[in-house]
Design a protein around this nucleic acid. Structure first.
Lengths: 171, 171
DNA sequence: GTTGAAACGCCCTGATG
DNA sequence: CATCAGGGCGTTTCAAC
């Protein structure tokens, strides 16, 4: 189980992965060696999955973000299979979720402009039948981060106790 | 302007920022020195904005993703100002866009569970008046990437020419 | 663009307390 | 957990082609 120091390490690396182990150790109040071991453990256990470079979408000409809400044509394993394969092959589809409620799937798409989105849309409805597709276009990005919130309730202190009281339904 | 080699470098670093300059140079068909210079330039020019560690949300107990569609209470600068300040202070709000069309704003939220989302929702409607809020809950993540698509049309060859014919509306 | 080389820092691994 | 020590690798810069 992760403790408060692990939480700090993850928090720091989520915002800046160029930090050296020495800097990291300094900021979490540890010496380099155990700090390095913790980082290794966080990677081995799959908490930290990868290190990537983030890019300014405007600078590479991918300025249009579109949220696409989809109602499936039918609810069969085949449909899901075809749909999954289709979006996997589309680099413009950066995120895809299966949803609860009326909307079945939600996509986050990044394209150069309307013309390209239209082409993508056509490829999509051609790959698999859809009952309904609603596209919403972003005008301005107010906030964007890849850093997940690190709640104290999800970590332990050195005695192995929760840092906060039990959270409802999270036992 | 970026050329084909820059495009490859960005593409590689978007998926794996742990690559050494030597490895990178090897894969793009360059020697280390000019490859290193290109990376520096990409960072200085703001194409590459940062390097971060990505984390498995399940492993840190943030398993619930919610898309929130918002219609603003009114359309004044003050409202936008208050709204922006509110979501900036909420780490659970990982993404926020101002949208075209009926929905004014779109949030992507990561929380530990329904209880926490409910608390966030209350904080949100308390911070600023809303005409309508529609929350959609993700059941399963089909795809997720931080890597933007790199279209050949947005890059040049060594002669400075577009790699593809002019794209409609992108001329 | 290329190669080769040097200086420096950091990563990573041990040993010790 | 801390501290110390060391080898090896990668980064960064330089010179010359």
């Amino acid at each position: 189980m992760m403790d408060e120091i692990d939480r700090k390490i993850v928090g720091l690396l989520q915002t800046d992965a160029t930090l050296s182990v020495a800097q990291l150790a300094d900021r979490v109040g540890l010496s380099p060696t155990p700090c390095w071991k913790r980082v290794q453990k966080l990677e081995a256990s799959g908490v930290i999955t990868r290190r990537v470079a983030l890019v300014d979408p405007e600078k590479i000409g991918v300025g249009l973000i579109v949220y696409v809400a989809i109602e499936a044509g039918d609810h069969t394993p085949d449909w899901l299979e075809s749909f999954t394969r289709a979006i996997s092959a589309m680099p413009e589809v950066m995120e895809a979720h299966r949803m609860a409620g009326e909307v079945d799937y939600m996509l986050r798409v990044a394209v150069t402009g309307m013309a390209e989105f239209d082409a993508l849309y056509k490829r999509l409805i051609q790959a698999v039948p859809m009952r309904n597709v609603t596209s919403r276009f972003a005008m301005e990005q107010l906030k964007y981060t890849t850093a997940y919130p690190l709640h104290r309730a999800n970590f332990r202190d050195r005695a192995g106790r929760d840092l906060e009281g039990e959270v409802q339904g999270q036992g």
